[in-house]
Amino acid sequence: MATSNKTASLGGHGEAVTRRDFLYVATAATGAVGAVAAAWPLINNMNPAADTLALASIEVPLKGIEVGQSVTVKWRGKPVFIRRRTADEISKAQAADKADMPDPETDAQRVQKGHEEWLILVGVCTHLGCVPQGQQVGSDRGEYGGWFCPCHGSQYDTSGRIRKGPAPKNLVVPEYTFEPNDIVKIG
């Protein structure tokens, strides 16, 4: 801008100008650093607060969930599907490992070793964010026996992988760990 040009050309004696310029640049740079440092707390204010983060992980007791049963819990404002799979569902999922899928993954990659019974998924269709059906007894589970999204017809298998329909990705597996006393900690 014209103003700064004027600033720089004021005075105008060779050596003095360089020293002066250095001082201007140093001051402007320091000021800019300060402005950024001052802006950060204001921006960081909008990140999740400590009490929100404290609720970022939940503990779900697995006791009482029968084989073949599904439960839905709320985690970070979204549904999480917990299904205790039957032996049949597990073998069907493992058998399909080599099948042609949009987002190839083996069943072993989607469950924890030694806990193959438990399939834990974020219940949000990877297409446009609807909640797929299949949690309740008798609801439509689609051709592959997993979940069926009523919005645009995406079909997931018993490993939560996308097999048919517009969704591009498998249902997301959240981070979780098995804790003592039949408790799973999600998040």
Partner: peptide
């Protein structure tokens, strides 16, 4: 920025300011 975390209700206003101090990132500042 404060208004984003403040609750204008007599039951929550005082605590919401304290939540800004204690839980919101740099809220105290």
């Amino acid at each position: 920025v404060l208004a984003m975390n403040y609750t204008p209700h007599i039951d929550f206003a005082h605590d919401s300011v304290q939540r800004i101090h204690r839980d919101v990132n740099h809220g105290w500042l």
